[in-house]
């Protein structure tokens, strides 16, 4: 880095192509969408930037506001589930032998090698009313019912008249399940990194001082992994909040998140200005979360510095 700064030509040669790429394919389109968000539809294909705030005002209408709240809630619950499930996984990987460690990490990264669409259709196959889970439950029901008949309790219909499949799709469960499934690797990896960095002797010291495993987990491991936990939350929550495919397919149109509404504005509703405004509200919310985190981290850093 230092030598690049001293040699501006080399620095420019290396930095220019990516900078050019970012400006042309990220900042310029983003600017166009930003302008749209202050625009109005003149006719079917023309948008004029009139600097109206109408699109942002419409986002505050109860229908849309509820959608934002629901998106935040779904993403929040999914993030929480990811943490609760991901922390033990990360802990197991950290404490396993080097040989096992690389295999387990591979297992975590493996889903990335398959297209999201295919993985989501696989989930449909598993969760559907005639999916694998219901198939297995149905089989269990048959077995149970048969058993009851054999012991002479068949007439009482203790297990119900017939097997009713569980509804696992088109509701909050299905969407949260899908969101967790997609986001879990993003949660596990930062947690794993934080736990791997942690000096093992802190854990040993806690045990040595008489604390049990559970106490050590809550009093020592979690506080010391807190920065990794915050990273995991952010890296899980932000993409989950903007999820489109998962609620679209697993929600069956019943459980929309904000991205589904945005998509509809750009497609079927043909209301690009409103879609643009919603996109930017989502973007601002994300920025706000990141800014709050770095402010918090900054304050903590300053406190530490002042302490000396």
């Amino acid at each position: 880095m230092e030598s690049w700064r001293r040699n501006p030509l080399v620095f420019a040669a290396i930095a220019l192509p990516p900078a050019f790429w970012l400006v042309l394919f990220f900042l310029v389109p983003l600017g166009i969408v930003w302008l749209y968000s202050f625009g109005e539809n003149i006719d079917l294909v023309t948008i004029e930037t009139t600097w109206t705030l109408e699109n942002y005002r419409r986002a505050g209408e109860p229908e849309i506001f509820t959608l934002f709240v629901r998106s935040l809630w779904l993403a929040g619950v999914a993030t929480l589930v990811c943490l609760v499930v991901g922390f033990p996984i990360a802990l197991v990987i950290t404490t396993s032998s080097p040989k096992w460690k690389s295999w387990l990490l591979l297992l975590i990264i493996l889903p990335f090698w398959t297209n999201l669409l295919i993985r989501t259709y696989a989930l449909l196959n598993i969760l559907g009313s005639r999916g694998r889970i219901n198939e297995a439950l149905g089989w269990l029901w048959e077995m149970g019912d048969g058993f009851l008949t054999i012991i002479g309790l068949g007439q009482l219909n203790l297990l119900g008249e017939r097997f009713t499949p569980l509804t696992l799709l088109g509701n909050n469960f299905g969407v949260i399940f899908g969101l967790v499934y997609v986001a879990l690797p993003f949660t596990v990896l930062p947690l794993y990194a934080a736990l791997e960095r942690m000096d093992r002797s802190y854990i040993e010291a806690s045990l040595d001082l008489g604390a049990g495993q559970l106490r050590t987990f809550f009093s020592v491991i979690i506080p010391l992994a807190s920065s990794g936990i915050v990273s995991a939350i952010i890296i899980t929550f932000i993409p989950t909040l903007g999820s489109f495919l998962t609620p679209d397919l697993l929600g069956r149109g019943q459980v929309d998140m904000i991205a589904n509404v945005i998509e509809r504005q750009f497609k079927s509703a043909n209301d690009w200005p409103f879609g643009a405004a919603l996109s930017f509200i989502l973007l601002y919310a994300t920025f706000f979360a990141l800014a709050a985190r770095s402010l918090l981290a900054g304050r903590r850093g300053r406190e530490d510095a002042e302490a000396f």
Partner: peptide, 20 residues
């Protein structure tokens, strides 16, 4: 007998004083 049940205590090489 697990470490937390032994009547002994240890001073670690890295001290392992809990930073939080």
């Amino acid at each position: 007998v697990s470490p937390n049940k032994r009547p002994i205590n240890m001073v670690f090489q890295s001290y392992a004083v809990f930073p939080h």
